[in-house]
Amino acid sequence: MTNNVKLERTRYKLTQSELAEKVGVSRQSINAIEKGRYNPSIVLALKIAKTLQISVESLFQLENSD
Protein backbone atom coordinates (compact mmCIF):
# COMPACT_ATOMS: atom_id res chain seq x y z
CA MET A 1 0.00 0.00 0.00
CA THR A 2 1.27 3.52 -0.78
CA ASN A 3 0.21 6.73 0.91
CA ASN A 4 0.38 10.51 0.67
CA VAL A 5 0.40 11.11 4.41
CA LYS A 6 3.63 13.10 4.38
CA LEU A 7 2.50 15.28 1.49
CA GLU A 8 -0.90 16.00 2.99
CA ARG A 9 0.53 16.52 6.46
CA THR A 10 3.00 19.14 5.24
CA ARG A 11 0.26 20.74 3.15
CA TYR A 12 -1.80 20.99 6.34
CA LYS A 13 1.31 22.44 8.07
CA LEU A 14 1.51 19.81 10.79
CA THR A 15 4.62 18.17 12.17
CA GLN A 16 4.72 14.41 12.70
CA SER A 17 4.42 14.95 16.45
CA GLU A 18 1.40 17.21 16.04
CA LEU A 19 -0.38 14.77 13.76
CA ALA A 20 0.52 11.89 16.08
CA GLU A 21 -0.95 13.72 19.05
CA LYS A 22 -4.15 14.55 17.17
CA VAL A 23 -4.78 10.94 16.16
CA GLY A 24 -3.57 9.37 19.42
CA VAL A 25 -0.44 7.49 18.34
CA SER A 26 3.31 7.97 18.75
CA ARG A 27 5.41 10.07 16.38
CA GLN A 28 7.25 6.88 15.44
CA SER A 29 3.99 5.36 14.20
CA ILE A 30 3.36 8.34 11.90
CA ASN A 31 6.97 8.12 10.67
CA ALA A 32 6.60 4.39 10.03
CA ILE A 33 3.35 4.99 8.08
CA GLU A 34 4.90 7.74 5.96
CA LYS A 35 7.91 5.57 5.12
CA GLY A 36 5.67 2.65 4.17
CA ARG A 37 7.00 0.43 6.94
CA TYR A 38 3.61 0.07 8.61
CA ASN A 39 0.04 -0.04 7.28
CA PRO A 40 -2.36 1.57 9.76
CA SER A 41 -5.61 0.02 10.92
CA ILE A 42 -8.86 1.22 9.40
CA VAL A 43 -9.62 3.26 12.51
CA LEU A 44 -6.24 5.01 12.42
CA ALA A 45 -6.45 5.59 8.66
CA LEU A 46 -9.88 7.20 9.11
CA LYS A 47 -8.60 9.34 11.99
CA ILE A 48 -5.64 10.56 9.92
CA ALA A 49 -7.89 11.30 6.95
CA LYS A 50 -10.37 13.16 9.13
CA THR A 51 -7.58 15.21 10.75
CA LEU A 52 -6.09 16.13 7.37
CA GLN A 53 -9.59 16.79 5.97
CA ILE A 54 -9.16 14.47 3.03
CA SER A 55 -10.76 11.17 1.99
CA VAL A 56 -9.13 7.89 3.00
CA GLU A 57 -8.93 6.82 -0.67
CA SER A 58 -6.98 9.97 -1.52
CA LEU A 59 -4.59 9.29 1.32
CA PHE A 60 -3.97 5.53 0.93
CA GLN A 61 -3.77 3.56 -2.34
CA LEU A 62 -3.53 -0.15 -3.01
CA GLU A 63 -0.55 -1.42 -4.97
CA ASN A 64 -0.70 -4.19 -7.60
CA SER A 65 0.97 -6.57 -5.14
CA ASP A 66 -1.78 -6.06 -2.50
Binding site: G24, V25, S26, Q28, S29, A32, Y38, P40, S41, L44
Partner: peptide, 9 residues
Protein backbone atom coordinates in the same frame (compact mmCIF):
# COMPACT_ATOMS: atom_id res chain seq x y z
CA UNK B 1 4.48 4.33 27.90
CA UNK B 2 3.99 5.01 24.17
CA UNK B 3 1.63 2.10 23.56
CA UNK B 4 -0.21 2.30 20.24
CA UNK B 5 -1.18 -0.02 17.41
CA UNK B 6 2.33 -0.12 15.94
CA UNK B 7 3.71 -1.34 19.28
CA UNK B 8 0.87 -3.91 19.46
CA UNK B 9 1.81 -5.19 16.01
Amino acid sequence: PNEDELISQ
